[in-house]
Design a protein around this nucleic acid. Structure first.
Length: 553
DNA sequence: TTAGGGTTAG
């Protein structure tokens, strides 16, 4: 990973002439534009651009549309920069321009705050919030509702709730904004609680409320409550439009009532890409590939979400080869030949300039897998700098990177920061990674202590991590305990037997090795041989150990 | 002027 260099970036000093402002807004600024343009061109990191930006703000040059435009262009088009920064610059710029003539009023702020929500531009939105307070608009319900939505979309539920609570005269939109923020922010319980609170306050829910409530049911996988919500919608004669139908459809699909979902889908007069993708995803996740493919083919239009749903479901069902072939076949339908489909992949990769949490987490995983733990952690830091909120998967990957690189302290620090700093509750995978980190480095007792303190039941992967560490450090006694706990949870885990047998072999206990092998035979357990794969001319070839061996002969 | 639905990363 390249480190950011920090060459001195400075604007020409303001001249000590009679002109108090070296960068006036008048056309005479032309003479002073060129140094800034050349300085912007010399920047080779976001940090340097930010330095230029801050100096332009300090000196007032950012008020000059030409110069500001140069900075925004550089922010958007430079290979090292991010669109978010450009968008943020643009937002501030627009706001400053606005400031020059008319100050935003109570009708302007909801739009400005909305723009910040869409860009997830936290600091920009907070600045708007500050301005709202300063100009005494902080009791306007439209503005406050927008702020609840803004904080919710930035993942800051505490601030969203603080604004909601302080909204003097809440309307249905206030409640809906907060319910949605909770439902989308991983707090479905709180969303449902708020829905009950809304009823107590005699605020009549509408279709948007019910979308949020259904979304919370879906997150909780609570079919019973979901069904109750659907009957509530009927009883209260809530307008069922396409969006609400789609929310109901998704709830049925994800909560496992496939029949209800199918009935609803067939009954729906109007369907859009959300209805189709929800159904497609339902079939695909059930492993009904023919049906899924049928739905995919029948879709009037297909977007990236539909492709992702089908390809990933096939891949997740343990069929990477089929997923790849499906991708190639589907691409060639539109793109005529394989070369073009590969270009399509490259094009998609180039479009990852967006660098969302999915792309970043996947990259961290890739680096971790290939032993580049430090680079993975650097990427994680950059992700935080870019204000991309890490989630549960990100932390699994980051901890995996620490484990592969032997970064015990770093791993511990991040693990204990997960909940208090990032609001991500450690799950079984994080505990398994942490046990792995401690165990690999020989801290077996620390690992045991961590397992004992777990607030959730240790899963097979947690015991598996401990067993693996025992094998590495030759601790037979602890290995036997870990293995027996592991087999209690997963009796047919051939890996556990193999690991324990390896420990016995390593310590010369051959009688125990043969004993274990016999148990495996009696249970009909066989270790699946590992294999590699390679794609040649569109065909995926699998190589087992035997094939490798023959190729070497 | 404010609020809503589908997919992807381990």
């Amino acid at each position: 990973m390249a480190t950011q260099s920090t060459p001195p970036v400075s604007l020409p000093r303001p001249s000590k002439s009679n002109n108090p402002n070296p960068y006036p807004l008048s056309p005479t600024v032309n003479n002073d534009r060129y140094p800034i343009q050349s300085l912007i061109n010399q920047c080779n990191s976001t940090k340097q651009l930010k330095q230029v930006h801050s100096q332009m703000l300090r000196t007032g040059l950012f008020f000059d549309p030409f110069s500001a435009g140069k900075l925004i262009t550089a922010s958007a088009l430079s290979p090292f920069s991010s669109l978010d920064y450009a968008r943020q610059s643009l937002l501030v710029f627009l706001q400053l321009l606005h400031h020059c003539e008319h100050f935003p009023d109570k009708f302007t702020f909801p739009f400005l705050i909305n723009a910040a929500s869409e860009l997830k531009a936290f600091r920009v939105g907070r600045a708007f919030h500050g301005m709202v307070i300063k100009v005494s608009l902080s009791s306007d319900v439209y503005i406050l509702n927008s702020l609840v939505h803004f904080y919710g979309s930035c993942g800051d539920l505490d601030l969203a709730y603080a604004v909601f609570v302080k909204t003097p005269q809440k309307d249905v939109v206030s409640w809906n904004s907060m319910i949605t923020a909770f439902a989308q922010g991983g707090c479905p319980e709180e969303a449902l609680e708020l829905f009950r609170g809304m009823e107590k306050e005699n605020v009549k829910p509408n279709d948007v409320t019910m979308v949020g409530v259904l979304s919370a049911c879906t997150k909780k996988l609570d079919l019973e409550f979901g069904r109750w919500v659907c009957s509530y919608i009927e009883r209260n004669e809530i307008n069922v439009n396409l969006t609400l139908s789609n929310a109901m459809l998704d709830m049925y699909m994800k909560c496992g009532s496939f029949e209800d979902a199918k009935r609803l889908f067939d009954k729906m007069q109007e369907k859009d890409i959300f209805s189709w993708t929800t159904t497609l995803d339902g079939y695909a996740k059930l492993g009904e590939y023919d049906e899924a493919r049928h739905v995919f083919d029948a879709m009037p239009s297909k977007d990236i979400a539909a492709w992702n749903a089908l390809i990933s479901a096939v891949e997740q069902n343990g069929k990477p080869k089929e997923a790849w072939l499906f991708f190639v076949n589907c691409s060639s339908v539109r793109m005529q030949n394989r070369m073009r489909s590969l270009l399509f992949v490259l094009y998609q990769l180039l479009l990852t300039e967006r660098k969302d949490v999915f792309v970043r987490s996947a990259t961290i995983a890739g680096l971790a897998m290939h032993g580049h733990g430090r680079a993975a952690l650097d990427l994680f830091s950059k992700m935080l700098e870019a204000r991309v909120k890490p989630n549960s998967v990100t932390f699994t990957n980051v901890l995996c990177a620490c484990s592969h690189t032997g970064l015990v302290n770093e791993g511990q620090r991040l693990f204990y920061q997960m909940e208090p700093v990032y609001g991500v509750v450690p799950g079984e995978k994080h505990y398994a990674c942490m046990v792995d980190i401690l165990g690999r480095s020989g801290l077996l007792q620390e690992a045991v202590k961590l397992i004992e303190k777990m607030p959730i039941l240790p899963t097979a992967s947690v015991w598996g991590a401990l067993l693996g560490a025992c094998r590495l450090h030759g601790n037979i006694e602890l290995a036997e305990q870990a293995c027996s706990r592991l087999l209690e949870l997963d009796p047919r885990n051939h890996g556990a037997y193999v690991l324990l047998s390896n420990i016995y072999a390593k310590t010369g206990k051959w009688d125990r090795v043969s004993g274990l092998r016999k148990i495996m035979r009696d249970f009909g357990l066989k270790k699946e041989p590992g294999c590699s794969s390679i794609e040649v001319n569109g065909i995926v070839h699998k190589f087992s150990f035997l094939t490798h061996f023959m190729l070497l002969m």
